[in-house]
Computed example of a mutant assay.
Amino acid sequence: MEKTTTLNLRVSPNVKQSAESVLSKLGIPMSTAIDMYLNQIVLTGEILFVATLLKTPASVNTAMMTNEEIHAKLQKGYADAEAGNVTSAAKVFAKIRENH
């Protein structure tokens, strides 16, 4: 089947570069990969990955807290920071990824 439609996409430059790197190793042009993905949607009638929201732990979900609980958590955070009881963001995010 001849390709006659142009598809313009806006994506994060980092995502594009990372995807191109992987696809290059596989010997697949980006346009072919996108075409393959769209064909799979047509063939299966579904998106082939799960799209879900991460569940926020109740201990940090401010939507489930009173103003007093939020204030107490903030005060504890300030006290921990002043005492040097801190963890780098990189370690925190690595742990979150590990658990999901």
Rank of each mutant, 00 (worst) to 15 (best):
P57Q: 11
Y37I: 14
E98A: 11
T62V: 15
Y37S: 13
S88N: 00
E82N: 07
A90F: 09
Q75M: 15
K76C: 03
E2V: 06
N67M: 14
S24K: 12
L7G: 06
Q75K: 11
E98M: 08
I96T: 02
T6L: 14
G45P: 09
G77D: 06
A89R: 04
V15P: 03
F49V: 08
S18M: 06
V86L: 05
T52R: 06
V92E: 00
L43A: 13
P29I: 01
A19P: 04
I70F: 09
A63H: 14
T32W: 08
G77I: 01
A90M: 07
L54A: 01
E46L: 07
I34Q: 01
L53R: 15
A83W: 03
A58K: 15
Y78W: 11
N99P: 02
V11A: 12
L23Y: 01
T5Q: 09
E98G: 10
L26K: 12
T4G: 04
L54M: 09
I70H: 06
M30Y: 10
E68V: 09
K95R: 10
A33V: 04
Y37E: 08
E46N: 11
E2C: 02
T4W: 02
E46I: 04
K73C: 05
S24Q: 10
A72D: 15
K73V: 03
E46F: 04
P57T: 08
N39W: 09
T5V: 11
Y37F: 13
L54D: 07
L26Y: 10
L23I: 00
N61A: 08
E82D: 07
Y37M: 08
